[in-house]
Design a protein around this nucleic acid. Structure first.
Length: 848
RNA sequence: GCCCAAGUGGCGGAACGGUAGACGCAGGGGACUCAAAAUCCUCCGCCUUAACGGGUGUGCGAGUUCGAAUCUCGCCUUGGGCACCA
């Protein structure tokens, strides 16, 4: 072995794996299967360090499980529909399809040099008609199963470009191109009935024990189960047909603190008044300004308009409350109408203060007196409070018991009923865009909305489209919309909405089990490969993508495309952190920031000597120029260095900072391993060393620790142990066979992280076959045991001494030794310790 | 605004409630070299001490415990998500 040259060995081993078909997944009834999946990428055209980190983690698991004897499925595909391709089309005129497939080719070419153990024969893109045609087929099945419907829903409307905008295209309430104030507008759109599964998606979270607790919690909060009271106010002065106003509240115990009622600007009553009252129309129109995000709605200034309508308090009809239209009441949640209890809700408090409404207290802190409030008093529901305007239950009780009692009281009194509500809304999948999966539905004047005949699938996107004017090219295409009704044969029009790209990513994991089948899935393949045993991706997908996938798997089961065992498709989930880098900044004459790429900066200075400001690490982004191109790293140090460094410095779930010094250090380490391998290879066969026993013990410990590190997803610790083992080995004087055995084991332990150098060492040191196919080493328990332990002695919790004792010495004997210790005798000064705590094998604490 | 998470040396990070700082980076000292780079050896939280040692220390403030980076409560800061970015 001459010198460590990654550029020579890496292509060589990649070719060897290819030739041997090492990573082709095969259904094998004789072996247990393991399905590793990383969230598939959007084909932006360039891979970035975040991809390297994500796919390296998955690769470690895939290679480790393969070495453990599993039949591994580790596929790769492309989340290829979406807005960037249309944006590129608008900017440069290139067709979204050309753009996307070009990007895929480039990214694939950049990913292959990483040496990932991917089965590339299963690759597909969601924009392949072969894929989205099967998606259309499932959509039709879901329609038949009652999981799809249409209703009106609001979108961001750009009144200048006359087009629908995505949330990210709305900047400070303005359209990104037109700069016009965005409005909320209602359109009839397609929905999946995810709300049918609200309760199940929530309760099934308990079974996902190998998911991060925080993801489960975020999903639970997102589904947002609440128990409350729904009841109707009787109205006075309301238009005909609005003599009752249904409201929902999670705090019925505060009913006697009500000082107003409020309805959403989108409430039917508001819409009715809008048509008859110019003041209401003006106010409601004003409320519809701005984007549709929850953030925009909730941070907007709270405003209301008194409708003149009054409602009677259900407990005391002599009390009349005004009904406001309020911009912070959401039509999507509950009934779109609330009663305001300003004393115990901050939004209501601000509203009441602004409009001079009374703020009656319902309860005060236990032991406190009634006093005017400067802000809403909102204690935890689990906290006991003293009710001043309670109407049922004890005077002093928790909010929780008061709510339960209030619901029971109201039900008995005939005022409304207890209702379980979910915050989760149905999934709106309509997109008024070109580059997505066409919704396979036809609008017929006679038959109404009719699903396309499955024989006509896939409904392909037309090629001849342009993006020179805003709006959906499908909508203005001269012929694509024209079709005949599958039911009656009359001339009809095709649906021009395409599907949310989250639909594409909600079932790709299932498609990988039979990627080119003529049905969405194949029962035998799905049965063998599902579920995904380990899913890995960014925490930014913790809610939407994962929740939609969980829903879709259930829908696929209901429509016969997945077995019942696959309704929770991801057995284990790991969410990895981002890759960050420092930001380098100078300013121009006008004080505007100019960002500089890392390679332009040396020792805090530009090439011309100008010093840069260093801004602490942030997610790599093109606009901040704090990006490191993995291709450059591979060119200078090799893929093994990039892979190792991405795993080494931080725990996988946390952000990792890319540093040039860290990458260099990794390269130096791999070079040292290479040099060590050379040295061992050149040892005379008969060399006799003195450290063979210690080497065997260190090897066993390394096997144990690295295995544990991989199993527990603490790759940084596995790598620390590999450093330790390498350091021990390079300082050891062992006999030739002992050294060879040890370094072969080192190669095997490194193989999941740095597969190329591992293969080189393995073959050079006489390993048989490919290292990637070698069975994972097992530690000999006898070599892990140790006879004595060092026991620290604490005096009053501070370490003062230590003793070495046999591992299994009884606590009583340890006590004797401790009391005979010089430091302990000195500290006691002849007194008897108050307490003596012996934690066997761990520590001793003497309390004086 | 709402939901979630994270804060430990100069830096990235270790630490079943049990010796805080494994491992790596940066830095100091030394060897090799005419010299430098590379490589190897060695030291390295802070204060104090000639040394042994002592004090102090895990964002801030309380609490539980023989013992808290770890558990509880309250704050501060930073990051992620908020339904049409993927």
């Amino acid at each position: 072995m001459s010198q460590y040259k990654p550029s020579e060995i890496e292509p060589k081993w990649q070719a060897a794996w290819d030739d041997a078909g090492t990573f082709t997944a095969r259904r094998d009834a004789t072996r247990p299967k393991y399905y590793v999946l990383e969230m598939f990428p959007y084909p932006s055209g360039r891979i970035h360090m975040g991809h390297v980190r994500n796919y390296t983690m998955g690769d470690v698991v895939a290679r480790y499980k393969a070495a453990q004897g599993f039949s591994v499925l580790h596929p790769m595909g492309w989340d290829a529909f979406g807005m960037p391709a249309e944006n590129a089309a608008m900017a440069t005129g290139v067709h979204p399809s050309t753009y996307t497939y070009g990007n895929i080719a480039e990214m694939r070419a950049q990913m292959k040099p990483l040496g990932l153990s991917i089965d590339w024969t299963r690759e597909f893109a969601t924009c392949d008609p072969e894929y989205y045609g099967q998606q259309q087929s499932m959509f039709i099945d879901m329609m038949a199963a009652g999981l799809v419907y249409r209703k009106a829903a609001v979108v961001n409307w750009d009144p200048v470009d006359m087009t629908v905008l995505a949330n990210e295209q709305v900047i400070d309430g303005k359209g990104w191109r037109s700069n016009a104030a965005v409005e909320r507008r209602e359109l009839t759109q397609w929905f999946f009935k995810i709300s049918d599964y609200s309760g199940e998606l929530l309760s099934a979270l308990d079974g996902l024990t190998n998911w991060p607790a925080k993801v489960r919690l975020m999903q639970a909060n997102w589904i947002g189960k609440s128990r409350g009271l729904q009841f109707a106010f009787t109205t006075t002065g309301a238009p005909e047909g609005f003599d009752r106003l249904e409201v929902y509240t999670t705090r019925p115990d505060t009913l006697l603190g009500a000082s107003f009622a409020a309805i959403s600007p989108d409430h039917p009553l508001a819409k009715h008044l809008e048509r008859h009252d110019p003041a209401v129309a003006a106010f409601v129109t004003d409320c519809r300004k701005g984007g549709t995000t929850a953030e925009a709605l909730e941070t907007a200034e709270k405003r209301g308009l008194d409708t003149g309508v009054r409602v009677l308090h259900p407990f005391d009809t002599s009390v009349e409350l005004p009904v406001y239209i309020a911009n912070f009441v959401l039509m999507d949640y509950g009934t779109g109408a609330i009663f305001g209890c300003p004393a115990h809700d901050q939004r209501d408090f601000e509203f009441a203060t602004k409009y001079g409404l009374p703020i009656p207290l319902v309860f005060v802190a236990e032991g406190a007196d009634e006093a005017p409030l400067s802000e809403a008093y909102v204690p935890m529901k689990s906290e006991k409070v003293r009710y001043i305007r309670g109407f049922t239950g004890d005077t002093v009780q928790t909010g929780d018991t008061a709510v339960t009692a209030a619901i029971a009281f109201c039900e008995a009194a005939g005022v409304g009923q207890g209702v379980t509500n979910y915050r989760l809304r149905d999934w709106g999948i309509s997109r008024q865009r070109y580059w997505g999966c066409p919704i396979p539905v036809i609008h017929c004047a006679e038959c109404g909305v009719v699903p396309e005949d499955k024989a006509n699938l896939p409904i392909k996107l037309p090629e001849d489209v342009t993006f020179d004017i805003p709006g959906n090219p499908l909508d203005r295409h001269p012929t694509w919309r024209n079709c005949s009704c599958p039911k009656c044969g009359a001339d009809a029009r095709r649906e021009t909405d395409t599907m949310d790209t989250f639909v594409d990513s909600s079932w790709y994991y299932a498609r990988f089990t039979a990627p080119h089948a003529t049905t969405p899935t194949v029962a035998e393949d799905a049965a063998y490969w599902m579920n995904v045993d380990q899913y890995i991706g960014g925490v930014e997908h913790a809610i939407l993508h994962l929740l939609y996938s969980r829903f879709f798997a259930r829908a696929m089961h209901k429509t016969g495309h997945l077995p019942a065992t696959a309704i929770e498709p991801f057995n284990a989930l790991f969410t990895q952190g981002m890759v960050t880098h420092e930001i380098y900044l100078t300013r121009d004459a006008a004080g505007r920031p100019i960002y500089h790429l890392p390679e332009e900066v040396t020792d805090g200075k530009l090439a011309n000597g100008m010093p840069v400001d260093v801004i602490p690490s942030a997610k790599m982004s093109k606009s901040k120029k704090n990006v490191v191109d993995p291709m450059n790293i591979i060119a200078s140090f090799g893929a093994d260095t990039a892979r190792w460094f991405m795993l080494s410095d931080s725990p996988p779930e946390r952000d990792v900072e890319w540093t040039a010094s860290g990458a260099e250090a990794t390269y130096k380490h791999l070079s040292r391993v290479w040099a060590l391998c050379s040295r061992i290879g050149e040892m005379p066969g008969g060399h006799v060393g003195v450290d063979d026993d210690a080497i065997a013990r260190a090897t066993a410990r390394a096997v144990q620790d690295v295995t544990f590190g991989i199993e527990s997803f603490t790759f940084n610790k596995a790598i620390a142990k590999l450093y330790e083992f390498t350091n021990i080995l390079s300082r050891s004087n062992g006999s030739t066979p002992a050294m060879k055995t040890a370094i072969r084991t080192l190669a095997q332990l490194m193989q999941p992280m740095t597969p190329h150098i591992a293969e080189s060492i393995w073959s050079y040191q006489g390993g048989s076959g490919l290292c990637a196919n070698a069975p994972w080493p097992v530690a000999d328990p006898a070599l892990l045991a140790s006879d004595t332990v060092i026991l620290p002695i604490q005096i009053n919790g501070k370490r003062r001494a230590e003793i070495s004792v046999p591992k299994d010495m009884s606590p009583a004997e340890v006590e004797k030794l401790v009391l005979a210790d010089d430091a302990v005798i000195k500290a006691l000064g002849g007194a008897v310790p108050k307490k003596l705590i012996v934690v066997p094998g761990r520590i001793v604490n003497v309390v004086i």
